[in-house]
């Protein structure tokens, strides 16, 4: 149970659970890429990078 909770509340879970679809939707809305796999993959790269930064450094914006 403790492991499930720590995963759910981790920065990486937020990146994958929320930021990934958000960036995908934004990329399509701003017409930066065509919808489908290109937008999904770009969204994944941005969200995962941010998630890793927050997970490993403890900050989404570098400063802490």
């Amino acid at each position: 149970m403790k492991i499930i909770i720590s995963i759910l509340f981790s920065p990486m879970a937020f990146a994958l659970g929320f930021l990934w679809p958000l960036f995908t939707q934004l990329i399509v809305a701003l017409q930066l890429s065509s919808s489908g796999w290109p937008a999904i993959l770009t969204g994944a790269v941005i969200a995962t990078s941010l998630g890793l930064l927050a997970q490993l450094r403890g900050s989404w914006v570098w400063i802490k």
């Binding site: 659970g17 679809p21 995908t24």
Partner: peptide, 14 residues
Amino acid sequence: LIFMFSMAWSGYAL
């Protein structure tokens, strides 16, 4: 979080 994740992956992230 579960609500936000579910809605986001249902196409309502923005």
